[in-house]
Amino acid sequence: MADMTSSPLISVTELAAALDSSRPPVLLDIRWQLGGPPGAEEYAAGHLPGAYYVDLDRELASPPGVAGRHPLPDPEVLGGALRRAGVSSDRPVVVYDAGPATSAARAWWLLRWAGHPEVRVLDGGLAAWRAAGLPETTEVPPAQAGDFKPVPGQLPTLDAARAAGLAREGLLLDARAGERYRGEVEPVDPRAGHIPGAVSAPTTENLAADGRFLAPAVLAERFRGLGAADRRVGVYCGSGVTAAHELLALEVAGFRGVALYPGSWSEWSANPDNPVATTELPG
């Protein structure tokens, strides 16, 4: 576990001050939810001043297919979307969503995977911003000409075989709701259950009642209790979105080098040769 001197989170107070500074961050609105409504509609109805909307389905993922419902994006598509929003290598970026940081975490992870050095997530998202009485706007800022060019592969990832191996020899965390992990329900993907050997760690347990992340020490205790202290760790979810939220929580807690399985359950369950488990393992 590394030190926690630099948090990947930013509070609404810190963000408000940063936006009024000589080096304001680029703001990216990543609102999205499975099954809609489209985040673009919510963005049009009101967003943080100066924020640019980025579409998770079209710009932060490739089209669904054999690699899952949200495969990693084409670097050219990702780079084009980020540059239009003014993202440059020498300017900080802050990403936010409606509140729980699920989709914002996907953008945070992707930007770092693509090599951006300074990305943070607004803790509590738009809900926290509104609760603080801070301003919103419906004005859409003009397209920019940022210079950021993605260099993929700066963070570790897993394919199906390596995910299976990590479940046997390290720690593979399943970030979905417990009922999906246990195979009691499966609303989206072909089969119910989980990757054999994976441990249930729902992302909802990373958050306090107000939608902000738990304190670093509390999160660290949670993940140590799941066995993350002295093992190689990987995370998956349904399609690689909420798994990024788990990775964010792990980083807040001080854990580094955790790998993401981008294809996640959507890829795993679509292959009939992959085994499925429904028995819960103790953390």
Rank of each mutant, 00 (worst) to 15 (best):
Pro135Asn: 08
His47Asn: 09
Arg256Cys: 11
Pro202Arg: 02
Gly124Trp: 01
Gly283Asn: 12
Pro63Phe: 14
Val94Ile: 13
Thr242Val: 10
Pro75Val: 01
Arg232Tyr: 00
Glu14Cys: 03
Arg232Ser: 15
Leu173Cys: 08
Arg162Thr: 15
Ser88Trp: 01
Pro150Thr: 00
Ala61Gly: 12
Leu111Asn: 00
Gly257Ser: 10
Gln154Arg: 14
Ser22Asp: 15
Ala259Gln: 11
Ala16Tyr: 15
Phe213Asn: 08
Trp113Pro: 03
Ser62Leu: 10
Ala164Cys: 06
Tyr181Arg: 09
Ser264Cys: 04
Ala229Pro: 01
Gly80Tyr: 01
Glu267Ser: 14
Gly99Cys: 02
Pro100Asp: 13
Glu118Pro: 06
Tyr52Asn: 11
Ala131Glu: 07
Asn206Ile: 14
Tyr96Trp: 00
Gly86Glu: 14
Asp189Asn: 03
Pro272Lys: 07
Glu205Val: 13
Val94Leu: 04
Gly133Met: 07
Pro156Ile: 03
Ala107Glu: 11
Pro135Glu: 01
Val218Asp: 13
Leu172Trp: 07
Arg191Thr: 08
Thr102Ala: 12
Ala132Phe: 06
Arg31His: 15
Arg69Phe: 10
Leu126Ala: 11
Ile195Asp: 07
Asp20Lys: 10
Glu221Leu: 15
Pro275Thr: 01
Ser89His: 14
Ala175Trp: 04
Ala217Asn: 04
Val119Asn: 06
Pro275Trp: 05
Phe255Lys: 13
Arg232Val: 06
Asp20Pro: 11
Leu56Ile: 12
Arg31Ser: 05
Ala253Glu: 09
Glu280Trp: 09
Ala160Tyr: 05
Val252Pro: 06
Ala163Pro: 04
Trp113Ser: 01
Pro135Trp: 12
Leu158Gln: 11
Pro24Thr: 00
Leu60Ala: 02
Gly263Ser: 04
Ala228Leu: 08
Leu19Gly: 12
Val26Gly: 13
Thr138Gln: 14
Lys149Asp: 07
Leu72Glu: 03
Leu27Thr: 09
Leu60Asp: 02
Val95Trp: 04
Glu251Leu: 08
Pro142Tyr: 02
Thr5Tyr: 09
Asn274Phe: 00
Pro25Gly: 07
Ala101Phe: 14
Tyr43Cys: 10
Pro216Met: 02
Pro117Ala: 12
Asp90Gln: 04
Pro37Val: 13
Gly115Val: 01
Val151Thr: 14
Tyr236Leu: 12
Val26Ala: 08
Tyr43Trp: 02
Ser6Val: 12
Pro8Gly: 06
Gly283Val: 11
Glu184Pro: 07
Ser103Asp: 14
Gly146Lys: 05
Leu260His: 05
Ala132Arg: 11
His116Arg: 12
Leu19Glu: 13
Asp159Leu: 07
Ala131Ile: 03
Pro135Ala: 03
Gly125Glu: 02
Ala143Gly: 12
Gly178Cys: 03
Ala114Gln: 06
Thr138Arg: 13
His194Thr: 04
Val121Tyr: 06
Leu72Ser: 06
Gly254Glu: 02
Tyr181Lys: 01
Ala16Val: 05
Val54Leu: 14
